[in-house]
Design a protein around this nucleic acid. Structure first.
Lengths: 340, 340
DNA sequence: CTGAAAGCGCTTACAG
DNA sequence: CTGAAAGCGCTTACAG
């Protein structure tokens, strides 16, 4: 039946049926040719391609999703976009998904498990083929929402748990390694500054504390925290606070690089010698840390690698492939510059 | 017909039909109740809501999109994600779209019109209800793809052209205003450093040049350019280059704040007094510019406002509302700090 | 290797 | 205010 004879609800757009008519084949053959099904006669496939080009046909993804009961998109949920860390992770993942013909939808949870749950409910209406979730702080309801349904890969942290896929590294081990470096450089009163107070910040603090204890050093009164979001301005403010409350500290480990960057600039303004009087270290190796005066000692976190590997694993799970090990630890790198 | 008696292609998920059966109404009534169609009896609507909750029903957006021939998502295309400018714009737009029940899809063009065209072709398969495009550098083919079809709002720049909607500000005027400020502070040999060489960078350069000419100053040999992407490290490098090639300059206007931040840190390392020996200015007022030593003089660009307003306008266009003026200029703010 | 029929889960006209 | 029928544009079984 030529589409032009159809009743009034048609959208007026070029459809599979138009292409089939023009190519002189059935719609099913067009469908198969477009999806690259091998059984199609190359000559017919070529006719189809010509018709597609001539008519400017664009397949309707909603119809395809409905008929095939699979979607060609994945959802990724990150805490926020204002941190270069997540931008780079998402950017790397996006490249993998795009190359595989998948569309990536992004949601921002603002570090709030309830918001994450709400976002997930909305996203599930779009039947994503897979999910990338940040960390393991999901609510029980969120876990139920995804249980047994869509494939999920957790990013940033890694956890050995049956059937749970994750790509990340040990925040605790990375923070402990940096702390041991400070100790080796002769620092003894090492403060830890935590902000945002999310799960990974707390894990870093545990790493700092463990390294201090292992070295027989005291952590009492050296842990500082602030609920606000990480920023350079906050780092400057917290440097002042630490020095006011504990003028005896010889080093400060900031849970994120932008805090440390702000602290270095504040030290510059106050004429505090870094690392002479005070060593300063950060976490993540964000853009600009290598440009600071002095350059910032930190831990480089492989977020692009995490994004790439997590996306590849999710695609594998969507295809139904075996993926192992389920928990992939991509490690971290201590980056020793001049500030500590 | 109870859905359980259907043949084998069913997905096993809870559908409208299940909800209708449980609520004892027809599927159309459920559909109407869920969409908030006013004509539905409140008592029936309540029964529907109960059934929805009891069954955990989640509507299938693909089926809805296909049946209604409208989608509930919009596509936004930005040059890159590594600039806080676009992150904030996208974040603000996303909040508006989300509140209106729209899903936002994002694509990254890497400042490449051909890549933008390709992305748009892919996006059009998903039948977005509307489009947010950055600037006006679209290819002719891109313009044809969207002509007369989906509503489009251009962001960052603004152009008075019939039927073309845009939200932005005059990059040229903003750059000229900053340049006039430098002149008023007594600077005479004002270099302009351009990188990335995208349309808006070139517009800023024109503004700088126009301001110099208007003041009877010479621009010859004072325009520097580099094709690489903006970064602090590149700013440090370009400061060195400008001073090597033109040691007589008394000020440098960098086309983006991160360059200027990197230049300020390089000046610190080299012991160059800012603003005494050299004034340094940037553009965009990015995070950290207020923390620099000395704090950076720059132009604040209202990207959150642009994101919000552009999203609101796009939603209005999608609803079929009149939107005027088509070109909205949201202005800019000169931010005078200590560096210039 | 190709196709006619049925169906994916919704919503749109059209009745009543 | 409510519903039976048809259809959105594809793909999945099932034949041949």
């Amino acid at each position: 039946m030529p589409p032009s004879s159809k009743p009034s609800r048609a959208t007026g757009r070029v459809t599979l049926a138009h292409v089939a008519e023009r190519a002189g084949v059935s719609p099913i053959t067009v469908s198969r040719a477009l999806r690259g099904v091998a059984s199609v006669d190359p000559a017919l496939a070529a006719r189809v391609q010509e018709a597609v080009a001539a008519l400017g046909y664009v397949p309707d993804s909603a119809a395809r999703a409905l008929a095939s009961r699979t979607s060609a998109h994945v959802t990724v949920l990150v805490p926020l976009l204002s941190n270069a860390l997540f931008i780079e992770l998402v950017d790397a993942a996006q490249a993998v998904f795009h190359a595989a013909g998948f569309q990536m939808l992004m949601g921002v949870t603002h570090y709030d498990p309830a918001e994450e749950e709400q976002l997930l409910r909305e996203q599930l209406a779009h039947r994503p083929a897979g999910l990338l979730l940040t960390g393991f702080g999901q609510t029980a309801a969120t876990q139920r929402l995804v249980a047994g349904g869509v494939p999920v890969v957790h990013v940033m942290e890694t956890r050995r748990r049956a059937g749970v896929h994750s790509v990340g590294f040990s925040q605790t081990a990375a923070a402990a390694a940096l702390t041991r470096h400070l100790i080796q450089r002769g620092r003894r009163r090492i403060a830890f500054v935590a902000v945002q107070m999310d799960a990974r910040t707390l894990q870093r603090r545990r790493g700092w504390q463990a390294a201090l204890h292992a070295a027989g050093l005291d952590a009492a009164g050296l842990s500082f925290e602030d609920p606000r979001a990480s920023s350079m301005a906050l780092g400057a403010e917290l440097l002042a606070r630490v020095l006011a409350e504990r003028p005896d500290v010889d080093s400060i480990f900031f849970c994120n690089d932008d805090l440390a960057q702000g602290a270095l600039l504040e030290a510059l303004r106050r004429g505090i010698a870094v690392p002479g009087r005070l060593a300063v270290a950060g976490f993540n190796d964000l853009p600009g840390s290598d440009q600071m005066v002095p350059p910032l000692t930190t831990v480089r976190t492989p977020r692009r690698d995490i994004g790439t590997q997590a996306a590849q694993r999710l695609l594998a799970l969507i295809r139904g492939d075996d993926v192992h090990p389920a928990a992939l630890d991509v490690g971290y790198t201590l980056v020793v510059r001049d500030s500590a």
